[in-house]
């Protein structure tokens, strides 16, 4: 994937770059409005990650520019503003998704992957991880060509893991991904343990390897064995 990260906060930008790099991903950066405009006029990207408040201009203006030069890049807006107006404005102007700060990098990556998948969709939208094959359109999971029966949340969780393969995903990130960030679930994440246990069991019983493992009690990781 080729990504453009438009973010003026250096620390945050670095974090994003360092989370995305590897796996053949290329990350370009823009630190303000003029450089963002320059980059989008010069190069093509799979997805643009953009902060709405930029030095030198409004992030929404970047969206308008993209529309003006008739580009079809996927755009994910990152904003400190939870404002619904921002959200609606951004989505009206052609942004594909909206992520509110603070966010988990795993959530960011899952959203970017979803956007890229949708944009690159060419007849078949299939996500493959070794013997696990997911038809995103039909929302079907097959292991060794055998249909796996998952609940909606187990399905979402599996996609979340595959989007972030090789990365540790925290329990908080999982809870927010499945239940939304507005729900205050307190710090009791026992139910996530049960949830993941069920998913692992189903996958293993269907004949796949046990790719998901618990990490330091903080979270879980799906990786190649």
């Amino acid at each position: 994937m080729k990504l453009l990260i438009i973010e003026d906060e250096e620390s945050l930008r670095d974090s994003m770059v360092s989370y995305f790099k590897g796996e053949g991903n290329i990350c370009e950066i823009a630190v303000d409005y003029p450089s963002a405009i320059e980059k989008i006029n010069l190069y093509h990207y799979d997805c643009i990650l953009m902060d709405l408040t930029l030095p030198g201009g409004d992030g929404l203006q970047v969206l308008r520019e993209l529309k003006k030069i008739n580009r079809k890049e996927g755009v994910l807006i990152i904003s400190a503003r939870h404002s619904l107006d921002d959200k609606l404005n951004g989505l009206d102007l052609g942004a594909d998704d909206y992520l509110v700060k603070p966010f988990h990098l795993s959530e960011l990556k899952a959203r970017v992957m979803a956007i890229v998948r949708r944009k690159n969709f060419s007849g078949n939208n299939i996500l493959i991880f070794n013997e696990i094959r997911i038809d995103v359109m039909a929302m079907e999971v097959k292991i060794n060509d055998k249909l796996l029966n998952l609940t909606k949340k187990e399905y979402d969780l599996l996609i979340y893991f595959i989007s972030n393969q090789g990365k540790v995903i925290t329990k908080n990130a999982i809870a927010e991904h499945l239940w939304g960030d507005e729900i205050d679930l307190s710090d009791d994440f026992d139910f996530i343990y049960t949830h993941i246990k069920n998913l692992r069991k189903k996958i293993v019983e269907a004949g796949a390897k046990d790719y998901i493992k618990s990490m330091y009690g903080v979270g879980y990781k799906l990786e190649q064995i």
Binding site: S11, S18, L105, V168
Partner: peptide, 20 residues
Amino acid sequence: SHEMMTPLAVINSKLDLLLQ
């Protein structure tokens, strides 16, 4: 409140990286 979100996002992202 909004200004606080960015440092929080930084902390969160650094933690995410630390875990890796």
